[in-house]
Amino acid sequence: MHDQIAAHESKQKRTSNSNFGALTDLVAVMATLVIVKQSILPFSYLYAGPASTFCAMAVGTFLLRRRGLGWKDLGLRWPESWLKIIGLTILSMVAFVFATQMMDVVADYFFEDVGTSGRFDHIEGNLPAYIGIMLLVWTHGSFFEELLFRAFVIDRTSVALGGGLKADLIAALFSSIFFGYRHYYYQGMNGALVTGAGGFAFAMLYLWFGRKNIMPLIFAHGIFNSLAQTIRFLGIKD
């Protein structure tokens, strides 16, 4: 009986340590994202976001390795079936469009749509700038953002809350709010709400299939960003 009690207490202690460790990891990465971006914003409106995600990826990688984990454990895996990945990518894009269009109706009613506040205006007709922004699209704007805002934030938040369905849902909502906040500085409240809604759609998909393979979300994110920047480069107006 004494052995059973001791084993139970030991398990509770390990769980408590795991929860606290996940919380400290989450705070460290989120602090990196916020501090680095806010520090660079006065000097560069364009590169503050990318700089913060590059730094956060380094911090997140270190923290995961310290826990004996890696990005593979959070869903970054080579696809077993590319046909399945393509199908899930299309599904992810449909879900994102549906969520953002629904929120767009609400956001437009309460807040002005400021677009991207001229952040990418220099891309129009500028091939070197377009190539540079496309490099950021497929690093910071898709790969890093999905690994950080979906995989890392959701996983660490859920573990910190003890795991389970309720913790997963809270983690998905929290990651979406933070994702929307990250876009507020150049898209305003309208853009933050719409982006947050799209982030929530991706978060729910991450809980469904992303923990096994997050590649469809990365591809969907990258395709959307690529289309948006290509339209800007070509000077196509609404």
Score class of each variant (00 low, 15 high):
residue 168 D to Q: 13
residue 23 L to P: 03
residue 98 F to K: 10
residue 75 G to A: 13
residue 181 Y to D: 04
residue 229 Q to K: 08
residue 138 W to G: 04
residue 51 A to T: 01
residue 213 N to W: 12
residue 110 F to I: 13
residue 31 A to L: 14
residue 174 F to I: 14
residue 2 H to Y: 06
residue 159 V to M: 14
residue 39 S to P: 05
residue 81 S to K: 13
residue 36 V to E: 11
residue 56 A to Y: 00
residue 221 H to I: 09
residue 173 L to A: 12
residue 207 L to V: 05
residue 169 L to W: 02
residue 3 D to Q: 08
residue 205 L to R: 00
residue 109 Y to P: 00
residue 166 K to R: 09
residue 140 H to G: 00
residue 184 Y to I: 05
residue 156 R to P: 03
residue 143 F to E: 00
residue 185 Y to P: 04
residue 30 M to G: 13
residue 80 E to M: 13
residue 64 L to F: 03
residue 228 A to K: 06
residue 150 R to M: 09
residue 217 L to A: 01
residue 84 K to W: 11
residue 58 A to T: 08
residue 188 G to H: 08
residue 125 G to E: 12
residue 20 F to P: 05
residue 101 Q to D: 08
residue 111 F to S: 07
residue 144 F to D: 02
residue 9 E to L: 10
residue 17 N to Y: 13
residue 29 V to Y: 02
residue 59 V to A: 02
residue 6 A to P: 05
residue 146 E to M: 11
residue 44 S to W: 05
residue 30 M to V: 15
residue 200 F to S: 04
residue 149 F to R: 01
residue 224 F to T: 02
residue 31 A to M: 11
residue 114 V to D: 03
residue 50 P to R: 03
residue 162 G to E: 13
residue 115 G to F: 10
residue 92 S to K: 03
residue 91 L to D: 07
residue 152 F to K: 04
residue 183 H to M: 05
residue 216 P to F: 09
residue 135 L to V: 12
residue 183 H to T: 06
residue 109 Y to T: 10
residue 2 H to F: 09
residue 58 A to P: 02
residue 98 F to L: 15
residue 106 V to Q: 05
residue 24 T to F: 06
residue 121 D to Y: 08
residue 27 V to K: 05
residue 201 A to T: 13
residue 115 G to A: 09
residue 149 F to A: 00
residue 33 L to N: 03
residue 207 L to Q: 03
residue 125 G to K: 10
residue 12 Q to G: 07
residue 124 E to M: 14
residue 129 A to W: 04
residue 147 L to H: 03
residue 44 S to Y: 03
residue 132 G to L: 11
residue 83 L to K: 15
residue 97 V to G: 07
residue 60 G to R: 01
residue 3 D to S: 09
residue 101 Q to H: 12
residue 157 T to Y: 07
residue 201 A to L: 08
residue 122 H to Q: 13
residue 171 A to D: 10
residue 77 R to F: 14
residue 156 R to C: 14
residue 15 T to E: 14
residue 192 A to N: 02
residue 91 L to M: 12
residue 78 W to I: 15
residue 49 G to I: 01
residue 139 T to V: 12
residue 76 L to A: 11
residue 106 V to E: 06
residue 163 G to N: 06
residue 232 R to S: 04
residue 131 I to P: 04
residue 70 G to K: 08
residue 111 F to Y: 15
residue 80 E to Y: 15
residue 99 A to E: 11
residue 92 S to Q: 07
residue 53 T to M: 00
